[in-house]
Amino acid sequence: MSAMLLIEQALNGLQYGVMLFLMAAGLTLVFGVMGLINLAHGSLYMVGAFACAGVAAVTGNFWLGLAASLAAAAAAGAIVELTVIRRLYARDHLDQVLATFALILVFSEGTRWLFGSFPLYLDIPAALAGPITLPGGIEYPLYRLVLIGIGLAVAAGLFWLIGATRLGVRIRAGEADREMIAALGVDISRLYTIVFALGAALAGLAGALVGALQSVQVGMGEPVLILAFVVIVIGGIGSIKGALVGAILVGLTDTLGRFLLPVAFGTFLPPSEATSIGAALASMLIYILMAGVLVIRPGGLFGRA
């Protein structure tokens, strides 16, 4: 095992983490402001990926596809908020879970109906294809490096939006006391639609960006959704900072665990056993991390509870 390979894997983990952050940020915003648990967030990720793949296939331009993914996911989010989600704010979590589970069925089967069951492929734009040589002589795919950059830029933009703009003030006020800001004359239902569409757009962006690395298929959003939940539990619900730290922690733990555990077991077990035990344990590692955080801080690292 060389140090170069380790750095490469760490970068992969970072890239995975910032993409998880895009998912988790929307979820945690929607929960923080509206008190809603949204299982259909993964569907918005899928919508973004399909919109990007569809537009890129027709126009041949990845960037147009990326713009389309933002627009499609935001539009889908706004429509869903106006028709369904809006009726759920006053309901208990059970109703929210069920209604959004129903939305997943509608989105998944609807997409299967439109695009068929076969995965679509989305090519990495030509300008970003191929590796780049980092200082120290490490060859690393340029596209993944760009993803890290985009993810960190979006994170910075989000911190600015929440911390320094009028919309951000309203969002934070909505988290603190929704009756009061409604009484102060803020159109709360419009604010909710905007926040939901913003979260949806972030999910759609993540779906499109990751879609170019993997295949674009129905159900692709669900594993990511559950990982985003793990991220939120680790970071603390409603905290954007927690989502960022949690996402990078989960990304690094998962990627490095899959890389290092089989190697570690290999030092005292025969190779085939080491691989299978290492892989099985690595697949559980982030959940063990989550359990550990729960034992020490039940409210998450940056939670209020």
Binding site: H93, M284, P298
Partner: peptide
């Protein structure tokens, strides 16, 4: 140790943990 929406997410996550374990355990 938690409640409400945390509880939903955590039970979901532990369920998924076993799912991935079953997939990767030959």
């Amino acid at each position: 140790r938690t409640s409400g929406v945390y509880f939903i997410m955590i039970t979901l996550a532990f369920g998924q943990m076993l799912y991935y374990f079953a997939i990767s355990w030959p």
